[in-house]
Design a protein around this nucleic acid. Sequence first.
DNA 1: GTCTATAAGTTGATAGAC
DNA 2: GTCTATCAACTTATAGAC
Lengths: 178, 178
Amino acid sequence: MTRAEECPEEFDPTRLLTPRAREVLEAARTLLERDGWAALTMRALADELGIAAPSLYKHFASKDALKSQLVAVGLKDFGEALRPVTSVAALVRRYREVAGANPELYRLATHGPLDRDALPPGLEDWSGSPFFEATGEPYRAQALWAAVHGMVILELDGRFPTGSAPKATWDELANHFS
Amino acid sequence: MTRAEECPEEFDPTRLLTPRAREVLEAARTLLERDGWAALTMRALADELGIAAPSLYKHFASKDALKSQLVAVGLKDFGEALRPVTSVAALVRRYREVAGANPELYRLATHGPLDRDALPPGLEDWSGSPFFEATGEPYRAQALWAAVHGMVILELDGRFPTGSAPKATWDELANHFS
DNA sequence: GTCTATAAGTTGATAGAC
DNA sequence: GTCTATCAACTTATAGAC
């Protein structure tokens, strides 16, 4: 397995957080991955940390701010995992792997509108750029990203009749874009 | 535009509903499309109908039951709209059109796990079968469906840098599967 | 089929002391 | 940075009368 490249410093979402805020964010990620976003209440997060819920507001102004940080961390981690790019087939394989290893974070980072103002400038583009590098063409890159996202999300949600998508389906997809 | 074929009677989700329950369902769909699923509370629905919220429980046992009906109606309508199948390109175009015309119902019907026990038996398969007819091969059908779903949902959520996906991206996708 | 009254639970968030 | 006390809003859902 290819080793991931590190994210440029200016894209690191935790750059400006206090150490304690980082711990809160870490706990939030743990809880998110364990129980899903719907279960991630401020109370549940406080319990996980062993503190009272109102204390959280000393570290994050609102639940929404915390959510944006989680999304940003997701974009950073996923972007890192997809580098360096070797081929379309490898990119597709890696995308599936990293999403499958962090399903709830993946859902949170890709579902619904994106609050771009709350993200480090450039992070979103950087996160998706492996698709451009793999295809060498912007429209093709977008189409490939959308296709792979569709596969991943339908698989995570158990939408394929077989539960997860058969290998043949993944191969079919990768081949069409190779 | 090709005319849609009617859904077989046994797949009609409203088959066993009372006339009044159908009206409630209709209002729910209107409200869903207007304000989104998050805003569709039992109170809001009752207001839309001009009745009190508890009265709704005479027609649907729970909010979850209502949701399942909405999902079923979505699968039926989308399945209808995709028939008869003429080509992969036409299917992809039509899929985008019908999802774009009912974005909130599309979201509801495709997001998250599917409660298959609450659906008319066979409806789910029937709804997706145009993809098999268009591709003539099951794995290819799944891959195409996933790819198109990814495009649609990312476009609805405003996830493409350009807002909606450029025509070139859609063409790219359709061409890969033609 | 509709109503009123109400239960019972949840949530994010604030004030102010320490 | 943490606490306690508390608010204000909101949800789905039930009981029972008409």
